[in-house]
């Protein structure tokens, strides 16, 4: 799972931080900082709630698809 933030949309209101304080933090300038990239199951639930609650719909959760590397001769 990977979180992406659309910084064009985010207005730093911090609702995400209040739902998942271990993952999101608004900094002094009002910009959102991601504290971690990979999530435990418990955090994932909180992050899903944050994605749904963000007033500007700035957050997205992606499942990371790893493509197997192909050995070249």
């Amino acid at each position: 799972m990977k979180i992406s933030v659309d910084y064009e949309k985010c207005t730093g209101l911090g609702i995400c931080e209040s739902l998942a304080p271990d993952v999101f933090e608004v900094d002094d300038s009002g910009a959102l900082v991601l504290l971690k990239e990979s999530l435990s199951d418990e955090e994932r639930e909180a992050v899903e709630a944050a994605v749904a609650a963000c007033p500007t719909e700035a957050l997205r959760l992606h499942s990371v698809v790893t493509t197997p590397s192909v050995a070249r001769p």
């Binding site: 730093g12 911090g14 609702i15 931080e17 304080p21 900094d27 002094d28």
Partner: peptide, 11 residues
């Protein structure tokens, strides 16, 4: 002007 503080107090 302290956006980094407020949610900590909400918690």
């Amino acid at each position: 002007r302290a956006p980094s503080e407020i949610m900590k107090y909400r918690g």
